[in-house]
Amino acid sequence: MKQLVLEMRDVSKSYPTPRGPVHALGDVNIGICRGEFVMITGPSGSGKTTFIQIAGLLDCPTSGKVVFEGRDAMDMDERTSARVRAERIGMVFQRFHLLGHLSALENVAFRFRYTDVPRDDALARSRRMLQAMGLETLSSTRAASLSAGEMQRVAIARAVVLEPAVLFADEPTGNLDSKSADSVMDIMGELHRKGLTIVMATHNERLLRHATRHIACAGGRMQEVA
């Protein structure tokens, strides 16, 4: 029996606006098992990013229950959920969110900033991760000087260097040309083959071939696609 990493039950999210609440997600029921590569597709504004942020414990649902590795996220205090984010969740963003003034190595090592891992150990592990991704020549290059594809590869290295339980990727190829996007998806595929659970939001259905499971998202509703 496959082990559930993330479970959402009747999760809804709405944002208050001057013209009344906007419903970003409605009654989402989903379970993600260890080792899956789940791809969530849908047009812009369909609720993919909201889903990723709630699943990644960066946001709270308006109603419903989120269970991460057996623990109810609603019962976690701020410190606990921050600890889970630091140690069990990796995140990759469309706009990379690297710190431009730091080197690639320092950006990867920044993953350890809010953990108990000693600085030297963090740097050594980050160096090994860059090597594994073929980025060792860029380790001392400032992030602001990297190409978009290189930035996203460094961002993936940062997300997975701490061996998280789940990697959440929100449109990781959205800002990349097709060649860089392929390279990023190859890395994702490789990470999945090594056992990493990946949940990726994208509007590019061409990438579905990498996934083991497809969920379509439209108007805040999510539907399993066979």
């Binding site: 990644g56 960066l58 701020e78 921050a82 600890r83 984010r85 706009r95 710190l99 900033r113 809010y114």
Partner: peptide, 16 residues
């Protein structure tokens, strides 16, 4: 602001 969000996603609390 984005750096703050990144720090929070990497495990920083509001107190941090």
């Amino acid at each position: 602001v984005v750096e703050i969000g990144l720090r929070r996603s990497l495990g920083a609390t509001s107190r941090d």
